[in-house]
Amino acid sequence: MSESTMTRRDFLRTTAAAAVVGTAAIPLLTGQKKGKQAKVILIRHQNVVDTDWRVDASIISQMLDEAMVNLFGVKNAEEAWKKVVKPADIVGIKTNVWRYLRTPVELEAHMKRRIMERGVKESDISIDDRGVLSNSVFARATTLINVRPMRAHNWSGVGGCLKNYIMFTPSPPDYHPDSCVDLGAIWKFPAVEGKTRLNILLMLTPQFHCMGPHHFDKEYTWLYKGMLVSTDPVSVDAVGLKIIEAQRSIYFKEPTPMRPPVRHIVAAEEKHGVGVANLRNIELVKLGWKEGALI
């Protein structure tokens, strides 16, 4: 057995050193600011979703546009979408349709509309989840947009933007070992690498805890009413995880690390070189509703 075994005590040790709460987030916080940097927009709106989880199409559309304007540092939404899509592009929107917590169709429709406004033919746009490998538009895609809700996951700790691309492998179970630690490797696949222009991690009603495989209970969600937007899938997941861990501490009234520990986010940066997991290297811009931001 290797001496380099990672144990719970290693997490605890780092926790003590960083003097922060929540073991799983610790690796995200260590180290000095150096190396790659990333920018993440957190935007929230008090009325984007109601207590019955009905989504306001107009508000969620405005939120995405405003986030993109800030992300790309441009004057308006039209300019922002120019940074993402060209008229000649073939665009695949990788969504997530998990029955309990799917990407809102209102947001999918808005993205499609914006992409068509850029001059992309409707036949060159597809929105898909589990069928991306057999989807002819995704097969020809020159641009990908990655959008899904954040949720706790019984095997990988959390499901976020990184995990959303597991459907790009013909054999997802190959990426399940060690709590899906190597999900970042999928982002080097030819069908994916260099094509993703935008990552949107939805935090409208995030699920912060689960009690079993494909388990869902509204009790373990809350109306956060936000979204995280970046060109970097790792950094949106890192920030999203931090928010979820903060909510877990509030709900459980004690530090309650994700179970199992989230390993794939740090590994995406450190092992696969995909993006930025270290919060010190992430410029977080907060827009909109501030109450209960948790970060």
Binding site: T5, M6, T7, R8, P257, R259, P260
Partner: peptide, 15 residues
Amino acid sequence: NEILNIHFYVADKNL
């Protein structure tokens, strides 16, 4: 070990 780690993380290896 994978199930143990879901409920109480001990180590990545199967100690």
